[in-house]
Deep mutational scan, measured.
Amino acid sequence: GLTEEQKQEIREAFDLFDTDGSGTIDAKELKVAMRALGFEPKKEEIKKMISEIDKDGSGTIDFEEFLTMMTA
C-alpha cells in the first residue's frame, strides 16, 4: 500500500491538474497536465487515457481513479 506521504503527494498532483476545483479531472485538464509534463497528446490519446482510467464511465477522472493510475 501507499504511505500517507505518498498519498498526499498524489493528492497535490491531482489538485494541480483539477484546475477548476471540481474534484475530477476532465479531458481538457488532463491535456493541460500532460503538456506541463512535456507531452503533446492528441485528442484521441487523451480520450483513450481517460477511458482506460475512468472505471465508472463518467468521462472524468476522480481521485480514486487517479490514485489507481499513479500506482499501477
Rank of each mutant, 00 (worst) to 15 (best):
D18L: 04
T3S: 10
D54F: 11
E4R: 11
E9W: 15
D62I: 04
D26N: 09
I53A: 10
P41W: 14
A36R: 14
S51V: 04
E4W: 12
K55C: 07
T19H: 12
M69Q: 02
D62P: 03
F63K: 01
E29C: 15
E4T: 09
F14H: 00
K48E: 06
M49F: 07
G59A: 06
K31T: 14
F63Q: 01
E9R: 15
A27Q: 05
D54M: 12
G59L: 07
T60P: 03
F17K: 01
E65S: 12
L2F: 11
D18C: 09
F17Q: 03
K7I: 13
G1I: 12
E65F: 10
M69N: 01
E52G: 08
E9A: 12
G38Q: 02
M34A: 02
K28W: 13
S22H: 04
D56W: 09
E29S: 12
K55I: 09
T68G: 08
T19D: 04
E45A: 08
K42A: 10
E4C: 13
M70P: 00
I46E: 03
E40C: 15
T3F: 03
G1T: 11
R11A: 02
T71D: 03
V32Y: 15
I50A: 04
R11I: 02
T3L: 04
L67Y: 08
G21S: 05
M49D: 02
G1V: 11
D62E: 05
D20C: 06
S58E: 05
F63V: 02
K28N: 13
Q8N: 09
D20A: 03
A72N: 10
V32L: 15
T60M: 08
A27H: 06
E4G: 05
K43R: 07
A72H: 14
R35S: 07
L30E: 00
F39A: 02
K7V: 12
F39I: 07
M70G: 00
K28A: 11
A33G: 04
A33P: 01
L30W: 06
P41V: 15
K43N: 15
G23Q: 03
E44R: 06
G21A: 06
R35D: 04
F39D: 01
Q8F: 09
I10Y: 13
E52W: 15
G21C: 11
Q6N: 05
A33M: 15
E64S: 08
A36W: 14
L2D: 02
E45R: 07
D18T: 05
S22R: 05
D15T: 12
D62M: 06
Q6P: 01
V32W: 15
E40L: 08
I50R: 02
D54Q: 06
I46S: 02
E44M: 09
E9V: 14
L2M: 08
Q6R: 15
F17G: 12
L37G: 02
E65D: 08
S22N: 10
K28D: 13
G38R: 02
E29R: 09
G38D: 02
D18F: 06
F14S: 00
I25Y: 01
D20W: 05
L30P: 00
I53L: 12
E45F: 14
L2V: 06
K43P: 15
D54A: 09
E4H: 10
I25H: 00
D20Y: 04
F14G: 00
K48W: 07
L16M: 11
D18V: 04
G57T: 05
I25P: 00
A36F: 13
K48G: 05
F14M: 01
P41F: 15
D18I: 05
T3G: 04
E12V: 12
K43V: 13
M69S: 02
K28M: 10
A13R: 05
E64K: 06
M34W: 06
R35Y: 08
A72Y: 14
E44Q: 08
D62C: 09
I46C: 11
M69K: 02
Q8C: 12
L67H: 01
F66A: 00
F66T: 00
K55N: 08
T24F: 13
F63N: 00
L67Q: 02
G59R: 08
F63P: 01
T3C: 09
R11K: 07
E40R: 13
V32G: 14
E29A: 13
A33V: 14
L2K: 04
R11F: 04
D20R: 05
T68I: 11
I25W: 04
V32C: 15
F39P: 01
E12S: 13
R11P: 00
I10G: 01
D15E: 07
T24K: 07
T68K: 11
V32Q: 14
F66D: 00
R35A: 09
G23Y: 02
M34S: 01
I61F: 10
F39W: 14
S51F: 06
I53C: 10
S22K: 06
T24A: 07
T60R: 10
I10M: 11
F63L: 04
D18W: 04
E52F: 14
I10A: 07
V32E: 14
M49Y: 06
R11S: 01
D15S: 11
D56T: 10
L37H: 03
S22Y: 03
R11E: 01
E65H: 07
A33L: 15
F14I: 00
M34C: 08
I10L: 12
